[in-house]
């Protein structure tokens, strides 16, 4: 299983799902699905997200039990 703190990072940056989706080049539903752990993004998308927030991939996503 995987978890992430995308919602927290988004709140810190004060941007909406739609704004983040537009910046990354995906749909708002994709951001929603990632935030709610319904979808595990590809390495490419994870790298795009980490670059956008200025964090490493490990800081955004981590494995849970």
């Amino acid at each position: 299983m995987m978890d992430n703190n995308l919602r927290v990072e988004r709140a810190i940056k004060r941007i909406s799902q739609a704004q983040l989706a537009e910046a990354i080049g995906v749909s708002r539903q994709t951001i929603f699905a990632i935030e709610n752990n319904k979808f595990v993004p590809s390495t490419e998308l994870a790298l795009k997200l980490s670059a956008y927030f200025g964090k490493t991939v490990n800081e955004l996503f981590w494995l849970t039990d």
Binding site: G25, V26, S27, Q29, T30, A33, I34, F39, P41, S42, L45
Partner: peptide, 9 residues
């Protein structure tokens, strides 16, 4: 309209 990886999934 926006065919991204989640739509593919």
């Amino acid at each position: 309209k926006q065919e991204d990886e989640y739509i593919e999934y």
